[in-house]
């Protein structure tokens, strides 16, 4: 891009510095703390701790809830992405996307607090229910409330990659499918879905990983009654001051993220090979 390598190096220097200071150094520190004990000698105990009672339990719960969240997001987002890709630009496509992105202009914690007032015992939803003489529901401080909060917060991260992938499919492909006698259902399952696999994978990654590691949503909407692995890691830093254990557990979570990245890389590579 630049004629001179020197120029390009100079221009990338701020980025390199940023990466080094805020990404590479902290990562190295996590690995250092995660693989040593308080005496500074090498150990795997902080990582194998994940198999121990509380940690294992909270990891399983976090995996389960973030799986549910990802599934719900996908089910909600896919039809929406299909609609978005089909409506023409002047028929309000921009408006729909804006509406979806709009809440993201607000702070994430603020949005989660909003859910708190919605789901509370004397909250807005129960207020409407009791106004209609319907039995009020106990929603706040349950795993369900946490999944609600996760889906709400992470849904845009599913919609946008899906929409991107689907809108990139050449409409001629759909026309060909119809010409060759494929029904709507067949088109969806044999054409649209396989061709949007990349979008699905990046959507799943972008929802699953933040859902797996969240601790703010579970603290607020779970009333600290539901312990996820993110909460456990947070408390090892803030409550127990055991950075070694906290880093070790973070490394375990990184493994899930890396698995996810490998899958998406493989699918990228495959698509490139095909495309």
């Amino acid at each position: 891009m630049f004629k001179n390598k020197k120029t390009s190096a100079a221009l990338s220097a701020p980025y390199t510095a940023w990466m080094t200071i805020f990404i590479i150094v902290p990562l190295l520190m996590i690995f250092y703390y995660g693989l040593t004990d308080s005496q500074g000698s090498l150990t795997l105990a902080n990582i194998t701790a994940i198999g121990y009672g509380v940690y294992f339990k909270s990891l399983l719960l976090a995996l389960w809830l973030s799986f549910l969240c990802t599934l719900i997001c996908f089910i909600l987002a896919y039809p929406l992405a299909l609609i978005l890709a089909r409506v023409s630009k002047n028929a309000g496509q921009g408006l729909i996307i804006t509406i979806f992105i709009l809440p993201m202009w607000m702070n994430f914690l603020l949005r989660t607090y909003a859910w708190l007032t919605l789901l509370e015992g004397n909250g807005i939803i129960n207020g409407i229910l009791s106004f209609l003489h319907l039995p009020t529901q106990h929603m706040i401080n349950t795993p369900t409330a946490i999944v609600f909060g996760m889906v709400y917060n992470f849904l845009p991260f599913m919609v946008l990659p899906l929409y991107n992938a689907i809108s990139r499919i050449d409409t001629a492909v759909f026309e060909a499918a119809r010409d060759l006698g494929a029904g709507r259902r067949q088109t969806l399952f044999r054409i649209t879905l396989p061709l949007s696999v990349n979008g699905i994978i990046s959507g799943v990654t972008m929802v699953f990983i933040p859902a797996l590691t969240t601790f703010a949503i579970s603290t607020l909407l779970g009333g600290s009654k539901v312990l996820l692995i993110g909460n456990v890691i947070e408390s090892t830093f803030t409550q127990v001051y055991d950075w070694h254990l906290g880093s070790g557990l973070s490394i375990v979570l990184m493994i899930f993220i890396i698995i996810n990245m490998i899958i998406s890389n493989i699918s990228d590579a495959r698509q490139e090979a095909e495309g």
Binding site: K5, K6, A9, A10, S12, A13, P14, T16, A17, T20, I21
Partner: peptide
């Protein structure tokens, strides 16, 4: 050699940034 120099200068800038922050 040129490449090495530029890498060195990038590193220097990085160090300078860090020192500035401190």
């Amino acid at each position: 050699m040129k490449k090495k120099m530029s890498r060195f200068s990038a590193l220097l800038m990085c160090a300078a940034c860090f020192a500035f922050m401190l």
